[in-house]
């Protein structure tokens, strides 16, 4: 790491949520493979051997989506909410780090989709006048608390725009 990593990690259950998402993606990919199988069965133009290539690729994608990506994501996700700024980083292949001063925060939202709710997790979304930043998969209580904390801090420090 080139610069100090933000000290907070997101909730470990996020890994489970991401695995489920990966599983759903795998299911959709399998549907395509089945579609190709039906096509190849009835139309001569589509050769059968491609089916095996597709199956192999899908299996590989499954491993990547369900095992590797959630684990790697977990390692690289980090955030830090300090008195006067928010520090967020994520990603291995595409790494991104953002620094948002408290004074620029316009509003904070929490949102949770069906999968996140399964693990009582929530995504915290922080908006400035020009940008939006997300911290995924925090424990719902943590997200609520952070939302309150950030709104308070953002209120206190009020520079000009």
């Amino acid at each position: 790491m080139s610069f100090g990593r933000p000290k907070e990690h997101i909730h470990p259950d996020a890994k489970k949520a991401w695995r489920i998402k990966g599983g759903i993606a795998l299911f959709i990919e399998l549907l395509f493979v089945v579609g190709y199988f039906i096509l190849a069965r009835f139309v001569d133009v589509f050769p059968m051997f491609v089916l095996f290539i597709l199956l192999g690729l899908t299996a590989l994608a499954g491993v990547v989506q369900i095992v590797i990506i959630p684990a790697v994501r977990m390692i690289y996700w980090g955030y830090d909410i300090r008195e006067d700024e928010i520090d967020i980083q994520y990603g291995l292949i595409v790494f991104k780090r953002s620094l948002i001063p408290m004074t620029k925060v316009q509003h904070v939202d929490t949102e949770h989709g069906p999968i996140l709710r399964l693990f009582s997790l929530a995504t915290l979304s922080i908006s400035t006048a020009g940008t939006t930043h997300k911290i995924p998969a925090l424990r719902q209580e943590t997200a609520q608390a952070l939302r309150a904390k950030i709104s308070n801090l953002a209120l206190v420090s009020d520079e000009d725009v």
């Binding site: 595409v94 790494f95 991104k96 780090r97 953002s98 620029k104 400035t128 020009g130 940008t131 930043h133």
Partner: peptide, 10 residues
């Protein structure tokens, strides 16, 4: 500056 960001691919 509203936010300062860094991107880095592998």
């Amino acid at each position: 500056i509203q936010a300062l960001e860094w991107h880095r691919n592998i």
